[in-house]
């Protein structure tokens, strides 16, 4: 059975939980079984936010992952705390805008993406979470980019669909930055 996990972490307010939910929704759209499990500190604003998305073509089993095989790390603190947990052979996408020059542990493939700058260029710095998600999909295609784009629309309330363009552009910018070809 094919089982994939993605662990996302960052500061509260960076959209870590939402990025994970969009990934989970895309997995559902793709016909996979999926679980999205959040953990965050008690502060309503700020603090750390993390979530784990597990996808499988059968029952996902544990929604909790000790040593993730894919990591999306949005700031220096989450790199420090969570990169050491990466499984052997894992891939880690790191936001170099907030975590410049991260460590590169043996057995882990580290991809750096200047997510804040790319998001700003796409139209809104708040879309850095989608830049990171796009970059992950380029290097670990757990679901198709098109399904994630559809999931972005699902996640937006009707009155905010007009801002979908910025989000899709951010997603694609991240995908390109990590070597993906959006025309495929």
């Amino acid at each position: 059975m094919n089982r994939q996990d993605v662990f996302l972490a960052g500061l509260g307010g960076q959209g870590v939980l939402l990025a994970g939910q969009i990934l989970a929704q895309a997995a559902l759209r793709s016909g996979l079984e999926v679980s999205w499990f959040p953990a965050y500190s008690p502060e309503v604003r700020g603090g750390e936010a993390t979530c784990t998305v597990v996808m499988a073509d059968g029952p996902v089993g544990s929604p909790i992952v000790g040593r993730p095989r894919a990591l999306v790390l949005m700031d220096a603190g989450s790199v420090e705390r969570h990169l050491p947990r990466a499984a052997e052979g894992a891939i880690a996408v790191i936001n170099s805008s907030l975590a410049p020059d991260p460590p590169r542990p043996d057995g882990v493939r580290v991809i750096t993406v200047p997510a804040n700058e790319l998001a700003q260029a796409a139209g809104s710095e708040r879309s850095a979470n989608l830049v990171m998600l796009g970059a992950l999909l380029a290097v670990r295609p757990v679901v198709a980019l098109s399904e994630v784009e559809a999931a972005v629309l699902d996640a937006l309330p009707a009155h905010r669909r007009s801002s979908a363009g910025v989000n899709i552009e951010a997603l694609r910018a991240g995908y390109r930055a990590a070597g993906g070809d959006v025309s495929v």
Partner: peptide, 9 residues
Amino acid sequence: AVLAQMMEP
């Protein structure tokens, strides 16, 4: 707290 907050289809 796991079952309460986790999302699944």
